[in-house]
Design a binder for these strands. Structure first.
Lengths: 246, 246
DNA sequence: CTACTATTCCATAGATTTATGGAACATGAT
DNA sequence: ATCATGTTCCATAAATCTATGGAATAGTAG
């Protein structure tokens, strides 16, 4: 009564968004989509879902307008519908880490927890990469690197890390990054590297946060070179747009 | 495979939070709790719920650790469990306004939409209130004013606005604020004031955003009895000592 | 102690959601 | 045209969620 009917409608609308994040797999899908555009099949596989189930989930997310689609031949590519989506997912993760002891516990179990004294800040990384003191490692899957990465970073997906350890200059410190605070790829990579006697640290957060901080993002084919050709890949329009910050 | 089992667990935990915002009334409750601490009965009434239903919803929110409780005599007071909660609710609202045309439409219908050229920025308000050019009006219910308000603001709940119009100096411009971008109180107040020929504008956003911007928040009696020594320790001084209204 | 109040717990009927197989569609190749 | 592939739509059984009345629980006042 204190609230007009108008407000009630607003909350009803917002619940449409809530409906998306009530299911763990949908959060996972959304998280993946904040990294890069992907086809249904790829998403299903990455999230461990049957195809039809994944499609159903994607429909739910789509009805909330949190994703947009693009058709390429017979495939349909989904992508996050704007920066607010990524910001929302980030806020959800932050809240989880802050309030749910379980989340922090899980993360901490592999050294990704909040005992992050070991993490490199974005500012520090920017400075040290400029002076050539460190090598930046993108340990996410190659597609995600291709869709957008820190300029100058080398793509070395975690799954290939062991096999390609030799490519790293043992004299340089490694700074690894991945999808964000909830992602375990970089912490695992760092653990592996340290076990081999290399100096390695994680970047604070991941690529989405880097992007949201307004820092430059490069898109280029996944290759194994230190050099980058910041050519915009036409195969995905996700980060092609100059996205506003803040 | 690509994801370790650990990650799956994390998403499962985050879905606990999602479960809260899947129901419109729970979003509404959370929104109210970001303004001030409240008893179950008050919350039920404010959200238009039966008591047991409200209690049930609050249990769900509690299980996600998004609220904390405090017992005072026979009453139980709920409050938002930290600033991250308010930030999350704000992110949800932002996302809704950005992506769901329906939300913006509803808000716009009463002049609270994104055609906010008319809004006063926080910086502007700070400056102008210092030089005494404007009077700041808190049009939320008195309890919420008591729990925290912009220093120097006058409490004049919307429901009493018409009756107490005479108290306003017609020479000064009025800046009204309420709960935030989704709240309709201030826009309505401004509409009323303008209809009477007064100069009036809304503040951008509401008190939670003011607080999150790091600006000072005062807690004090609304104009009645009451101590104003913050007894609670959480991030923001949720303190209420209202004489029961009505 | 008893009476009373504010809240939570419990049981349940009714509504909604989920996973999934199979059918239907759209697109590109033959 | 026909076929193959990737995706969506549809139907459904199993699981989960919601609102609500009534009972149980704490705290307070006589």
């Amino acid at each position: 009564m204190e609230h007009d009917s108008g407000s009630a409608d607003v909350y009803e609308q917002l619940a449409r968004i809530g409906k998306v994040v009530v299911h763990p797999k949908r959060i996972e899908l959304l998280d993946l989509l904040c990294q890069a555009e992907r086809s249904v099949e790829t998403l299903a596989e990455a999230a461990g879902l049957k195809l039809t189930t994944a499609s159903a989930h994607l429909q739910v997310i789509r009805q909330a307008r949190l994703v947009e689609t693009r058709r390429e031949g017979t495939r349909v590519y989904y992508r996050a519908a704007g920066e607010e989506v990524c910001r929302f997912v980030a806020a959800l993760g932050d809240l989880g880490r802050a309030r749910l002891a379980e989340v922090d516990q899980i993360l901490r179990a592999i050294g990704a927890g909040s005992d992050s004294a070991e993490r490199v800040t974005r500012a520090e990384l920017l400075e040290r990469v400029r002076s050539g003191e460190v090598v930046v490692l993108d340990v996410r899957p190659a597609e995600e690197y291709a869709a957008g990465h820190i300029p100058g970073a080398v793509s070395l997906p975690l799954e290939h890390l062991e096999a390609r350890l030799g490519e790293l200059d043992p004299g340089l410190e490694v700074v690894a990054y991945c999808r964000g605070p909830l992602c375990l790829l970089a912490p695992e990579a760092v653990a592996t590297l340290r076990a081999r006697g290399l100096r390695a640290r994680c970047l604070e957060d991941g690529l989405p946060e880097w992007r949201q901080a307004g820092l430059p993002v490069a898109t280029a084919p996944a290759g194994r070179s230190g050099r980058d050709t910041p050519a915009t890949a036409p195969t995905n329009g996700h980060e092609a747009r100059p996205g506003r910050r803040r």
